[in-house]
């Protein structure tokens, strides 16, 4: 037929015509392409492995053969001594874990409250909005170490009856104060990225202000800020080590005690390894979450 509509399929070129509805089998063209791709992936993997062995192996060789290696490994990698003090450090790390758990719950609650106060427009909350802004500005702007010293040594110095001078509680308080300021800002930025039309749609359906927040705005905001919040969690775990300066026997303090007894720094390395065992998986997980959330936003963002 001369007035054929559409392009005829070029079945003689090796590619089978697309068969609507029938069972699909890859054409020879596609089979070849897949084989070529597989081959290329295999080659890339081989190159990566070989170059890694060379570079990392080379670096290790340089380190081990350097003149200082002997004293370095005696000072930092005395494994026998490290294993000996390990139980104490692990016990201390229990404090870091507990502190992290308690602090992150408190930070979550206070951070969300402050974010909500700062994004609200209710006139009744005006004074709280000002206070929240000042709070966030102040505690995001000073080193956490200073907050720890001020709270940990300052509050007991007041000698007020009924006020605790338990260093663990004061240390936790300092961590919570600092991280609440960070987290409040992260959550607030998440709330602000949700387009006003979403709230308008919710309100026009008759949902109250609170319901719109609860069911429409916050779920979307939290999805967007999950990766930065996980980042803050990793930072929080590490920063719990700072409470050791108040005399809390956490992993860092336990390592310090063990190290000063023997003038050997292996306990610090052991403590570092224990922190890494927790933070590295969490960081990987954060990366994966971030990648997923970017994919999701790319999928929806265009429309």
């Amino acid at each position: 037929m001369s007035n054929e509509i559409g392009r005829p399929s070029e079945s003689d070129s090796g590619a089978a015509p697309y068969n609507f509805g029938g069972e699909w089998k890859p054409s020879q063209l596609e089979i070849d392409r897949r084989a070529a791709r597989k081959e290329r992936n295999r080659r890339n993997a081989a190159i990566a492995i070989i170059s890694s062995i060379f570079v990392i192996g080379g670096l290790a060789l340089v380190a081990v053969t350097s003149p200082g290696w002997k004293s370095l490994s005696d000072t930092f990698f005395a494994w026998a001594y490290g294993v000996e003090v390990l139980p104490k450090i692990i016990l201390g790390f229990g404090t870091n874990v507990a502190l992290t758990l308690i602090a992150s719950v408190c930070v979550g609650i206070f951070g969300l409250s402050i974010a909500l106060i700062r994004t609200s427009r209710s006139p009744a909350l005006a004074p709280f909005r000002i206070l929240a802004t000042v709070y966030v500005d102040v505690f995001r702007g000073i080193p956490m170490l200073l907050v720890l010293l001020l709270v940990g040594f300052g509050i007991p110095a007041l000698r007020i009856k009924g006020l605790t001078n338990n260093v663990l509680i004061l240390g936790t308080l300092a961590v919570v104060i600092t991280y609440t300021a960070y987290v409040a800002e992260v959550i607030r930025s998440g709330i602000l990225t949700i387009h006003p039309s979403q709230r308008a749609a919710a309100r026009s359906l008759g949902l109250s202000h609170f319901q719109s927040l609860r069911f429409v705005v916050l779920p979307q905001a939290f999805r967007r800020v999950t990766p930065p919040l996980l980042n803050d969690l990793v930072a929080l775990i590490k920063d719990t080590g700072l409470v050791s300066i108040l005399g809390v026997t956490d992993a860092v303090r336990a390592a310090q005690i063990a190290s000063s007894r023997s003038f050997n720094y292996t306990p610090y390395v052991m403590a570092a390894i224990i922190f890494l065992l927790v933070t590295i998986p969490l960081t990987r997980f954060t990366d994966r979450t971030l990648r997923r959330s970017i994919e999701r936003q790319n999928a929806t963002g265009v429309a």
């Binding site: 039309s197 919710a202 979307q220």
Partner: peptide
């Protein structure tokens, strides 16, 4: 009310 830009809840 139905808007020009749909405004469905994406989550």
């Amino acid at each position: 009310i139905v808007f020009q830009s749909f405004n469905l809840f994406p989550h």
